[in-house]
Design a protein around this nucleic acid. Structure first.
Length: 470
DNA sequence: ATGTAC
């Protein structure tokens, strides 16, 4: 395998069907399995690919690795439901508070917060939304613009997001999968399961980032809430349905790929257009879902700390989507599957609120380890301004359950110590596959990203309480 | 990931 080194942590790997750019330090690079290169090569067979890159958290996924940035020209390119993944619109959101870590160090207060959050944000499957008065058809068409005014505490909740509404041709809603309305109904403002979470964290800000942090309203020891969720059944059903539909179309067209799970179509095709348009409906659901989860979290915090408590949104952004973006003076379709956009200061794609500073790039850690708030650098263009989306899985859910004991999980959450990360579950057994041991070391991943000059760390977010769904 | 399920 020929490899060209482009300087610090940037490796260009020459595969049979094209080039793959990998951003990782030596240690992380060596940990990559040969399967991730096999998958990249299959993805590079998709016609007219412009760019393909891996962030250091890359690991094997269905059809395409999680940690992939893959780009085509809008004019003649392809769209792939496999490179978006089924968790369409999954992403991160952070709200700040005026509270200091010392205000919630008392475990009784944190337990009260967890209980209150569980009251306002359903975390179990089959628990219904508290917002039955919201019409989800309005939401999937208009994003945050489809929410009743009473659920928008401040205009700031509409401006401090990657995108408040994804516009598309609503006529395509005619092609929604059967039962999608029935299944997604009652899910707005609910957490979901798997790696989704709500965490109460406090910030550690290094000396050299205090100025930027202050501009963003962040301070040392500050309590923040991080939310990780997506489009629930709405996106999952679309992902599933259109993987099948486009697979059928590939068969009819005589298009073959060695990986039967790698599905794609020309953007200009009827099938490609249908998927692309409906995918945007899922992005609208996803951003609205995180908004309503945050609304519930705010209610919970106000129940504990009083109704004067402000909880402004820092930012909301996605790591599973395909977005039309202008690069090299032409419209391109940028797929990010488990990859986070991190735009640098003054980049024109920044939302106005963050035009001059660049926007916060929100990177979740695993339970019990730190999460990160980062900011992109100019050099990030090397990977179309994509950085990692988290630690990345080190082993499968099944392998984790065989390897790690509940006791070891408890130890990693520092149970019984003052530093304990409180969890909403009485027993950790059901979420054992989400233990830190299931994930790579997030610090190593962040080191790779910083070392590659893609982004800088602004704040480290240390967990104090975690709410996980089932 | 998902009101799963070759």
């Amino acid at each position: 395998m020929q490899q060209i080194n482009h300087g610090s942590n940037h490796h260009e790997i020459v595969l049979e069907h094209g080039k793959l750019h990998v951003f990782a330090n030596e240690e992380v690079l060596e940990s990559f399995q040969s399967k991730v290169y096999e998958m990249a090569d299959n993805n590079l067979r998709i016609p007219r690919n412009v760019y393909m890159g891996y962030t250091p958290d890359a690991h094997v996924g269905v059809g395409t690795c999680i940690g992939t940035t893959a780009v085509w020209n809008m004019e003649d390119g392809c769209v792939s439901p496999s490179i978006v993944g089924v968790d369409i619109g999954c992403g991160m959101r952070v709200h700040t508070t005026s509270l200091h870590r010392n205000d919630i160090v008392d475990k009784k207060i944190r337990r009260a917060l967890i209980a209150a959050i569980e009251k306002y944000v359903p975390t179990n499957e089959r628990t219904n939304t508290h917002y039955a008065d919201i019409d989800i058809m309005n939401v999937v068409q208009h994003g945050l613009g489809g929410l009743p005014d009473k659920y928008v505490p401040d205009n700031q909740w509409l401006t401090h997001v990657e995108q408040a509404v994804f516009q598309y041709e609503h006529a395509y809603l005619e092609h929604l999968p059967p039962r999608i309305l029935k299944n997604a109904h009652g899910q707005l403002g609910t957490l979901g399961s798997g790696n989704h979470f709500i965490e109460i964290q406090y910030l550690e800000i290094s000396e050299d980032q205090r100025e930027l942090a202050a501009k963003w309203g962040l301070f040392e020891g500050q309590v923040v809430v991080m939310i990780h969720s997506g489009s629930r059944a709405w996106g999952a059903m679309l992902g599933r349905e259109y993987n099948m539909a486009l697979k059928e179309a590939m068969h009819l067209w005589g298009v073959h790929n060695p990986d039967p799970n790698l599905i794609y179509a020309p953007i200009a095709s009827r099938e490609g257009q249908t998927y692309l348009n409906l995918m945007y409906s899922a992005l609208n659901f996803a951003v609205s879902n995180r908004h309503m989860i945050a609304f519930g979290v705010r209610e919970a915090f106000r129940e504990v700390f009083g109704s004067e408590l402000e909880m402004p949104v820092l930012y909301d952004l996605m790591h599973n989507y395909a977005l039309k973006e202008f690069h090299r003076n032409r419209p391109m379709l940028v797929h990010r599957k488990g990859a986070t956009r991190a735009l640098p200061p003054n980049h024109f794609l920044n939302t106005p609120a963050y035009k001059t500073t660049g926007h916060p790039a929100l990177i979740p850690g695993s339970m019990g380890t730190s999460s990160y708030i980062m900011v992109g650098r100019e050099e990030g263009i090397k990977n179309f301004y994509s950085i990692c989306h988290g630690a990345g899985r080190a082993r499968s859910r099944r392998a984790t359950k065989e390897l790690v004991t509940v006791d070891q999980f408890q130890q990693s959450l520092r149970v019984g110590t003052e530093d304990e990360v409180l969890v909403n579950h009485r027993t950790l057994e059901k979420i054992l596959d989400e233990c830190p041991q299931a994930y790579k070391n997030v610090d190593e991943i962040i080191d790779s990203v910083v070392g590659a000059s893609l982004a800088d760390v602004v704040a480290k977010c240390k967990p104090m309480a975690a709410i996980k769904g089932l």
